[in-house]
Design a protein around this nucleic acid. Sequence first.
DNA 1: CGAAAACTTGACCCAACTCAACGAACGTGG
DNA 2: CCACGTTCGTTGAGTTGGGTCAAGTTTTCG
Lengths: 248, 248
Amino acid sequence: VSDIDPPMAILVRKLASRGALAAEDEAAILALPYVTRTYETRSYLMREGEPAKRFCSVVLSGFACGHLITVRGPRQVVSLHMSGDILNLQNLFLKQADRNVQALTRLDTAEIEREALKALAAERPAVAQALWVDTLVDASVGRSWMVNIGRRDARTRVAHLLCEFATRMKAAGLDEGGGYEIPMTQEQIGDATGLTSVHVNRTLRSLAQNGLVHRGKRYLALTDLGKLSSDAEFNPLYLQPDLSEPAP
Amino acid sequence: VSDIDPPMAILVRKLASRGALAAEDEAAILALPYVTRTYETRSYLMREGEPAKRFCSVVLSGFACGHLITVRGPRQVVSLHMSGDILNLQNLFLKQADRNVQALTRLDTAEIEREALKALAAERPAVAQALWVDTLVDASVGRSWMVNIGRRDARTRVAHLLCEFATRMKAAGLDEGGGYEIPMTQEQIGDATGLTSVHVNRTLRSLAQNGLVHRGKRYLALTDLGKLSSDAEFNPLYLQPDLSEPAP
DNA sequence: CGAAAACTTGACCCAACTCAACGAACGTGG
DNA sequence: CCACGTTCGTTGAGTTGGGTCAAGTTTTCG
């Protein structure tokens, strides 16, 4: 997807990865009406408990995360989003936002009216299926996070998160020169893995000493994804890279 | 749903809670072909990595859980299922099972052929929407579990799990006399909360001393759900009890 | 009735947390 | 373009919640 492609081409790419689309399906997606919008770093796209918005947002560039905050304060990051991801498909049907969504970087989105998307899904079964499959994959990713948070030690946990991030960036076409820059602070990594930022700091130092990650002044990069993957017990099956229809 | 109701009435009840259904929709669900099947305690309904089965299973009675096992051994329970739950909607579209599903008790299910369910969804948009919403709610529940596992202490974690279980049992019509019997061993509770069975044991003792749960010889029951809820920071919003369409 | 599964308890340990201080980079406004 | 507040990262010292190990008891069920 080059810079001069229309924004909806990013959505076509995403949905095509969730199910086979005919040329007419792709044309219909490209014809969707939308409004682009830019969010600054740290700004909220939605907040838990708020009434659902009347549109769904597709990430065009930048990164975002979903998170929830407990009564006593600590926050848990529950999802990460990048180019092509649909941030809030829930808005199609649910009344209230079930989490916060916040920009991790400067973020460009395309907003699609709920009714336009529902109409498209009603007319084009293949598109409806791709959207549905996308929510199934989201749930699968969530299960994988539960395992990560609940049953792995800090080192493996952080490594696993980084592997998932890199793998998804590659799938989204965001790998540049084989390296991956992770757009998260140590505190955010901690919030996504159920650790404190202090411990994430120590864990990253350890990973860097083994050459599994590369740390610059204010960024974190991955180079040797292979070695990191085996340390992380990373098996990308749960990301459902191959979604072609099961044999009848 | 009384004992003499047809098995598919359980599915009707479930889907009606996920979106408004017309009388024709309900009739079409009741007309679905199915095969009932019984699983013994501890038997597996599906295994991670296996090719997806050609049918979806609806729980008629009993309980099941989904779980994943890490390379090093520890297991994480990622979902709980009871009467009315659809165990494996993924089978409609995905090629491989992304987790294990195992019976917690003796379990009766109705198996519906994938193609029959897809055909129903294609013909009846309201049913398709209810099924889709069901997967959205599953994902929402998963996020709530991440918070529980990642950011709460043992006592709150266990209490939260019990509250969710009781709340869902009530929604499924399984509350008898206001009490709830939890069909999980302490080890399974540990696997669902990211704790060890030893620590679950101590935690339950503590909850029982405060009168928040009631323990018999080999079962665990909840009586004072209100007090337990506040100790657990339990907010049932994420279970989406009220799913009526958002205003246009 | 015997074996397996589930529960219980105690003693000890350690991975990760807390607290605290400081330094480096960023960005914003004057 | 510099000053200064804010965010982010780093490191050390001390603590603790929950894990580990191990032994024994109770319950279930074939």
